[in-house]
Design a protein around this nucleic acid. Structure first.
Lengths: 354, 354
DNA sequence: ATATTGAATGCGAACGTTCGCCCGAACGCT
DNA sequence: AGCGTTCGGGCGAACGTTCGCATTCAATAT
């Protein structure tokens, strides 16, 4: 491996003190044009690159942003992880920052890993995701006064910078879409009450119904686990209701529940999209290849990643409005499962309500 | 934010020089029992944690492992990213290392990002994945003599440390399985010839046939893009062959192609799993919820992550056998699409050929 | 009694930067 | 001619560690 080139070697080559080289490179000094050129030339020929560890040492920062996430359960895949990481990494890189990814620990206290990274000065800030009510990470980081930005909200009374998807708006779009198709009996496959994201989507479902003058039928709201089995069983129960109470449309709170719902309907010989509308949430890439293709709500993850990093960087540079809170609108993707058309495999229509 | 505690403060508290504190903490010195206890007590009460930037500065290392990956195309999801990252991050953490994730650049020369990270001393080593023939990263890192481990092989003549899935073995398991069910006309939905992974899987397909005394029918090998559309169109062509040439089983080189194949078969009114066997590769979590559920090959990603990091760490500690090359066996997951049974949704049988 | 060991600890130096202060020279002004 | 101002650049210091060598003191061997 080539020996590292340092400031001093450049300085010798250019015949100046090494501190002057540093000044030139940081564009902050008043140096004559000639010496400046001489120095830059020496930098070129020697192939000098600043040692970031030494810079970090001097500047008392690491230029690293910590990020950790809960792994997806084995029967599911995290549909946004790839894009979120790429987006955040890209936004960070342009500012000279990088992402430090650390593993999620179920067993021990969650905040331990965060504390260690702070105590050892490894990171300058955090991005946290999958934020829940009374999230221990939020309270911990707030107590320590350590910079962080959340992807997702928490308790309304807690005030901290976040970026979140407007899940309520997304659900409202779905309701709107179904109502236009003539549906009035719209069921919801919801999550347990302790889910913050679930509550947000529920709000959208309810306000969507209200906005269209539809009264809520408690029997059409089923709370269950957000997986295939949950969607399957809940839908089975819905389809056993007396005809007059039975829903003509089912809104699942995520895609994998919708897939369970489709299976339940098909087992009863129903043609999804014709006899019964079913919608999902997340727009997992594969749902466009289901039979029928699934109507879902797509989250603008790239934008979330950009915003999260942008806010965090402004906090780190202390150029921030203290409590930036951003909501981004998702996008409704209408497909066969809610359209009542015959099945075609290559048509996907994008509808984005403004 | 609390003022940072340094070695010197601990030293003052314990009444020794700060270098002695360092020695105690690194367990390398001969210090008396009493002072050792006094120092450790001071460390406790002051809450001292070593500043990792300063350590890195002194030790001329960053304890960071660089990792970058090509994002999945928009209609697909990377089924292994989550688990691979968690596995690598976990393995790294136990050795005091962390993952530095940087974005993939399509436009510029791929190695630029790698070069920058090396030049600025940001990372101690790399993990690279999606390795192809004549991969520029391999040649670049070999030239620079910079530590790295690959997830995936490249040209056979290149010698570097890697961990790879034995894709050939996986495909052979599939052939074996299909032959036991009585299939003799087994088609392959393959990838373009420049794909290293594709070639590896093709080898397994061919040797699997040979091992069972089945001669290769060139008409049953179709090369196409590894996406839904590719699988759909290739399967359509296969199903238009004269009955005597038509395959009774189709092995797709990945899951999303298999999904396209299923669609093509269903459009012709075939019952997949009964009239025609179809298999995938990767065992993307969602394929267990397809109709019919999909037989696929599962890759032991957790193990890959552990091995990759373990090898890299041994290189960094110079305790390595120079060219560790590890193959891990995948696992065949048999489901309805190749079983010829009526459709049931909750039965998944695992078969792992030894 | 003196030389030889060994343990326990102190001390200087270095890793590669950045920052602020200082100093000399040149310049323009009264 | 004297004085303040600006420009160009040098220099010391510090960030918090770790490492190797020097030093002290007591114990043992000669």
């Amino acid at each position: 491996m080539a020996q590292r080139v340092t400031l001093k070697q450049v300085a010798v080559q250019a015949g100046v003190s090494y501190q002057t080289v540093s000044k030139v490179l940081n564009k902050q000094a008043q140096v004559s044009k000639e010496t400046k050129e001489r120095i830059l030339e020496a930098v070129q020929t020697l192939g000098y690159h600043p040692n970031s560890i030494a810079r970090n040492m001097r500047l008392q920062q690491s230029c690293l942003i910590g990020y950790s996430w809960a792994p997806a359960p084995p029967d599911q895949v995290n549909p946004i992880l790839d894009q979120l990481l790429q987006s955040m990494a890209q936004a960070a890189e342009t500012a000279g920052y990088h992402l430090l990814c650390f593993p999620h620990h179920f067993d021990q206290e969650t905040v331990t890993a965060y504390r260690d990274l702070i105590d050892t000065n490894r990171v300058d800030g955090f991005v946290i995701s999958s934020v829940e009510y009374d999230d221990p990470r939020v309270t911990f980081l707030q107590e320590r006064g350590f910079p962080f930005v959340a992807f997702g909200r928490s308790n309304p009374e807690l005030s901290f910078p976040f970026v979140d998807i407007d899940g309520a708006a997304g659900m409202q779009m779905v309701v709107e879409h179904l109502v236009r198709l003539g549906h009035r009996h719209i069921a919801a496959l919801a999550w347990p009450k302790d889910s913050r994201v679930g509550q947000n989507r529920m709000d959208g479902y309810l306000s969507g119904l209200a906005a269209n003058g539809i009264s809520v039928s408690p029997g059409l709201i089923l709370r269950c686990e957000g997986n295939f089995q949950g969607g399957l069983e809940a839908t089975s129960r819905l389809l056993e209701l007396p005809v007059i109470q039975r829903p003509t449309a089912i809104m699942a709170f995520n895609d994998v529940m919708a897939i369970g719902a489709i299976r339940a309907a098909q087992e009863r010989g129903l043609q999804v999209g014709v006899d019964l509308a079913i919608t999902g949430f997340d727009d997992t890439p594969m749902v466009q290849y289901l039979t029928p293709t699934l109507t879902s709500v797509r989250q603008p993850i790239w934008e979330v990643g950009q915003q999260v990093i942008s806010i965090l960087l402004s906090i780190l540079n202390e150029t921030s409005l203290p409590g930036a809170q951003v909501l981004v609108r998702p996008e409704l993707i209408v497909r066969e499962s809610s359209r009542g058309q015959s099945i075609q495999n290559d048509k996907t229509k994008l509808v984005n309500y403004p």
